[in-house]
Design a protein around this nucleic acid. Structure first.
Length: 853
RNA sequence: GCGCGAGUGGCGGAAUCGGCAGACGCACAGGACUUAAAAUCCUGGGUCAGCGAUGGCGUGCGGGUUCAAUUCCCGCCUCGCGCACCA
């Protein structure tokens, strides 16, 4: 019996046109069984490789941000299949990584177990969304059958001298117990967890990415990537062209070599600066300055990188007492020490030209060093004049007349002086890069082991033979790294003060692993070269390793003999469309490109670049327009959304929110909106009890209806090609709104429309296709083709303007001659013309008439 | 500071080879159906003035080019992203 309050409580039971739970389960089961999304290896069809950046399977499952990119590529993949392409649309797992290991440290649960569970969750959610992946090609970076090839690539790098061990200052994160790459540090803290990071010299594996700097820069011309991403890669590589110049020491043997991009200002050098760590510091320092120099060097060493990078701070330095000789004019220049010069860039030493460099200018002002103008055009006593393109060289000639740059533009002076230096043997043209070699080792358990042993007898790292691969990650029981676990400080930041002396000696987890079969340390082994006792490398590879080449393995995921079969590689590569977050704009993409070029050089791959077209999906914000986060409580869970609205509605809303690449807020109301749209589509052809509606007729559509259909086919096709899914959906809404008004709905319109809808809302489309009386699957139908003649109207509405202001509109036949259009227009705006003749009449065919009076 | 990108109704957004600004959706208002509601369907709307026909003003701000500017040019402002003493 109904109570009064039953009438007051709003029912959340939606009067939906269809039961999305039932319908999605039905079609997902069908796809599971019939596998219509498999990529064929032997096909005469043209290929299309459509790839998502594979995820790290975190414990929190998919979020709506993931889904945006995945839905976009899914629509493209489904569309391309219907257009006759053999589509490769795979998914895998970037499953090595720190979170699972940290979870293991906390709970003792093995990372492999956590990872497997998380993968299962991700996969279940992806299937629930109806993503049309070829699951037969699924891979995980943690699978020995996969990482044996990651190790294999490392061996190739090693063989070619591109992997080497070096004692380098590294970014050590005590809280994480590992080193981090420069790129993994944000504002002096670890990107993961936000812990303090300090500099510490360590023996490390390093990859020589700098050997490929030029090609990594040059080949950016070959790809269709967002301008911002290309720009970021260029900046990261940071090529600058200039000269290396030697300044002989005045009172000692040797010379200070500097790198400069402005050799045209050589006559303006008034002092030199060495980085505090520069090896020549002891040589140039005079006895009187020894104490001050030592104090300065120690102070600099104590500063963390963060402190040294503080920009606004006053520049500091100390005079060494030594002098160097300017090679152009023989002047004695005082040599200073200052931490604004970095040991890690160029030669770690500069010639200072305060008149034409802002940093040198600030330093010269602080220490009252002379400022000498050599490029005319500014006021060098007030500020450094750095605009090379408007200025003329002055004060730059030798008395004997053997060299003069005076009167030249800097652009002319640079090659002139460089040639002079080369002739004198005191300098040469040089190119420098900001890019540094890639620190490739981590002191972690959950990563790929290095296929390397350290042999005391051979006195070098010895690579394992390829036949020994994979070197399987050994079982471990204790994941706790032996690390100093810092206390929470008052400021809320965990970590150290940045000094090295609080450090213990830290062992990587693999150093302590005991092999279960033989009850000895896993690291104890024999040298594959000399058979003497040797030690395995106990570092593991960084997470980037596995993601550097996974796109290749999808082309041939089960191959036990090769990384990828050459025929498969040639057929599928390159990736035609690659979609993923812009947070990977530099690192992942640069590292991948580097490995790809190495593989290209050894003949494993046939293309110089792996990813032809790249698109970054935008960030999805919470309903409050803030970044989604647990602490804000504004996280939208895809499972909840799909429970309530269904997978098709969620897919459609993800695409309808706005342009793919834009940052945009989630709106539950918006999801309801697209849900209404799907219900309207449903009701166009289905009755309340699920049968085919009697309004669906076989009669021929009207010309207007056909025009709308063909305009819709055109718009939807072109918009998918351009990844403009939001406007494609808007057009389908227009079509649906029109069809709703008609009570006779010709099949000839509805059937192509269902095909257009199918990449966006595949479950509903499959069901509608079946209700219309067709055998499955809609995904295997041919994409509708539009007739261009049917997309244009035979009647036109032409706006009529007076002086550019809209004053009227006329409707004419599309083929109306100009004079007729003009005459009609004049009649329409006669009261504005007031009988006088316009000064000018502008007629844009089929677009507009404008009278200038 | 430098580089890149973006600023359009109450909201998400559409329209840029210069040519009717605001498609589509959300929210809102009115109507139909209903005892009533929900759902659905129809209608309306940038803003100001006016009963209305109409007209003025409108795409961050200020200039410019043009018959015509959201679109192109110059100078600012704001926001986002990236880099940040790289010689």
């Amino acid at each position: 019996m109904l109570e009064f309050h039953d009438f007051l409580i709003p029912r959340r039971v939606m009067a939906k046109g269809y039961d999305h739970h039932e319908l999605e389960a039905k079609w997902q089961a069908y796809w599971e069984e019939h596998r219509p999304f498999r990529a064929m290896n032997d096909s005469s069809k043209p290929k299309f490789y459509c790839l998502d950046m594979f995820p790290y399977p975190s414990g929190s499952g998919l979020h709506v941000g993931h889904l945006e990119g995945y839905t976009a590529t899914d629509i493209v993949s489904r569309y391309k299949r219907m257009k006759g392409f053999n589509v490769l649309h795979p998914m895998g797992w970037d499953a090595f990584g720190l979170p699972a290991e940290q979870y293991a440290v906390k709970t003792g649960v093995h990372p492999a177990l956590t990872t497997a569970q998380n993968i299962a969750t991700f996969k279940r959610q992806m299937k629930r969304v109806g993503l049309s992946y070829d699951w037969e090609r699924e891979l995980s970076t943690t699978d020995p059958d996969y990482y044996r090839w990651t190790q294999w690539i490392f061996l190739q790098l090693y063989k070619r001298g591109l992997a080497y061990v070096a004692e380098v200052p590294v970014n050590w994160c005590p809280a994480l117990g590992t080193v981090l790459a420069n790129e993994e540090i944000v504002d002096g803290k670890s990107e993961v967890g936000g812990f303090d990071v300090i500099r510490k010299p360590m023996r490390q594996w390093v990859l020589k990415i700098t050997a490929y700097a030029d090609r990594l820069l040059e080949d950016l011309k070959l790809v269709e990537w967002p301008a911002s991403t290309l720009e970021m890669q260029k900046n990261w590589i940071g090529r600058s062209i200039g000269a290396e110049v030697d300044f002989a020491l005045a009172d000692a043997k040797g010379a200070i070599r500097v790198f400069t991009t402005r050799p045209d200002t050589l006559f303006g050098a008034t002092y030199m600066v060495l980085a505090p760590e520069h090896p020549l510091v002891d040589v140039v320092t005079g006895a009187a300055q020894k104490a001050a120099v030592t104090a300065y060097r120690e102070a600099a060493a104590r500063k963390s990188d963060l402190q040294r990078q503080e920009l606004d701070k006053e520049k500091t330095g100390v005079f060494t007492g030594g002098y160097a000789i300017n090679p152009v004019n023989g002047e004695r220049l005082p040599v200073w020490l200052a931490d604004y010069v970095l040991m890690s860039y160029g030669t770690g030493a500069i010639m200072a030209v305060p008149a034409h460099d802002e940093r040198d200018w600030a330093f010269a002002k602080t220490y009252q060093l002379p400022i000498r103008e050599v490029i005319q055009g500014g006021h060098v006593q007030e500020a450094a004049f750095v605009e090379t393109d408007r200025g003329t060289v002055v004060n730059s000639a030798l008395q004997d007349g053997s060299l003069s740059l005076n009167g030249m533009k800097p652009a002319e002076a640079i090659p002139a002086i460089t040639a002079w230096l080369e002739q004198k043997g005191t300098g040469k043209k040089a190119i420098n890069y900001k890019l540094r070699d890639w620190l490739f080792a981590r002191q972690r358990y959950w990563g790929e082991p290095f296929p390397i042993v350290h042999c005391p007898a051979c006195n070098s790292p010895v690579p394992l033979p390829e036949s020994a691969l994979p070197l399987v990650l050994p079982e471990a029981q204790d994941f706790k790294p032996k690390i100093f676990v810092p206390q929470q400080t008052e400021s809320g930041h965990r970590g150290t003060t940045g000094t090295v002396d609080v450090m213990e000696v830290f062992d990587a987890p693999l150093a302590r692993v005991v092999s279960q079969d033989v009850k000895r340390l896993w690291r104890e082994t024999t040298c594959p070269r000399c058979n003497q006792a040797a030690q395995r490398e106990t570092n593991t590879m960084p997470q980037w390793a596995g993601s550097c080449w996974y796109y290749l393995r999808f082309a041939d995921p089960k191959n036990a003999k090769q990384l990828v079969d050459p025929a498969m590689e040639r057929y599928w590569m390159p990736v035609d469309l690659y979609v993923g977050g812009s947070e990977h704009a530099v690192l992942h993409l640069l590292y991948s490109r580097f490995w790809h070029k190495v593989l290209y050089d050894i003949g494993v791959v046939s293309t110089p670049e792996p990813f032809k077209k790249l698109v970054h999906q935008g960030i999805v914000l919470g309903e409050d327009n803030q970044k989604m986060s647990k602490s804000r409580g504004n996280v939208v869970n895809p499972d909840d959304m799909m429970d309530q609205f269904g997978a098709d509605a969620v897919r459609l809303y993800e695409m309808f929110m706005g342009p793919l690449e834009a940052m945009k807020p989630w709106s539950s109301r918006g999801v309801e909106g697209v849900t209404r749209f799907l219900d309207r589509v449903w009701r166009l052809m289905v009755t309340e009890d699920g049968g085919l509606s009697s309004s669906v007729v076989t009669a021929a559509p009207s010309v207007e209806q056909q025009r709308l259909l063909h305009q819709t086919i055109k718009k939807v096709s072109e918009d998918i090609d351009e990844l403009r899914f939001n406007t494609a959906i808007a057009q389908m809404m227009v079509f649906t709104n029109e069809m709703t008004k008609a009570d006779q709905r010709p099949r000839a319109l509805l059937e192509p429309f269902v095909l257009l809808l199918s990449p966006f809302a595949p479950h509903v489309a499959e069901e509608l296709w079946a209700i219309l009386g067709h055998a499955p699957s809609v995904s295997q139908q041919t994409w509708p083709v539009y007739d261009p003649a049917l997309t244009v109207s035979d009647r036109l509405t032409i706006p009529v303007q007076i002086n550019g202001k809209l004053r009227g509109k006329i409707e004419v036949a599309a083929d109306t001659a100009r004079d007729v259009v003009e005459r009609t227009a004049r009649e329409t705006v006669a009261e504005w013309l007031q009988g006088s003749e316009p000064k000018k009449v502008i007629y844009v065919e089929k677009k507009l008439v404008n009278f200038v009076i």
